[in-house]
Design a protein around this nucleic acid. Structure first.
Length: 113
DNA sequence: GCGTTGACGAGGA
DNA sequence: GTCCTCGCCAACG
């Protein structure tokens, strides 16, 4: 709990996102109880590529379903490719049918931290 | 210890 | 519908 830094908590939640599903930074923030600080979630993902096990950060987008963090990946197109490979349609850097692929942590997971 | 930063979100114009 | 402003708070220099 307390030993796990804020970043680590974010990483764990992101890893729980099932394939073909996406969620928003705000949803993760809300799950961690920092709803107002959704920016912290994105900020935490800043070094996600450096963390192991590798984090499916491509399944995390902003509330618009826009691939805001694509430029933080190995390459700007990697995020889109990963999503497409999981059945998530991405067009113009934006997830189509976002609501259909949306996945909320607090909705699927039980708060038994 | 202080100021800036930031892969966001919500509200107002 | 779009564009702008404010707030949120941990991490970094």
């Amino acid at each position: 709990m307390d030993r796990a830094s804020f970043f680590e908590q974010v990483y764990q939640v992101v890893r729980l996102i099932p394939e073909g599903k996406v969620t928003s930074y705000g949803a993760i923030a809300a799950y961690l109880g920092i709803k107002g600080s959704s920016r912290m979630v994105g900020y935490a993902m800043n070094g996600a590529s450096l963390i192991l096990p590798q984090i499916p950060a491509h399944r995390v987008v902003n509330r618009n379903g826009l691939l805001t963090g694509k430029f933080h990946f190995e390459s700007p197109t990697k995020m889109e490719e990963l999503l497409a490979a999981e059945g998530v349609i991405v067009k113009n850097d934006k997830i189509q049918n976002f609501k259909d692929h949306y996945w909320e942590p607090s909705l699927e997971l039980d708060l038994e931290k």
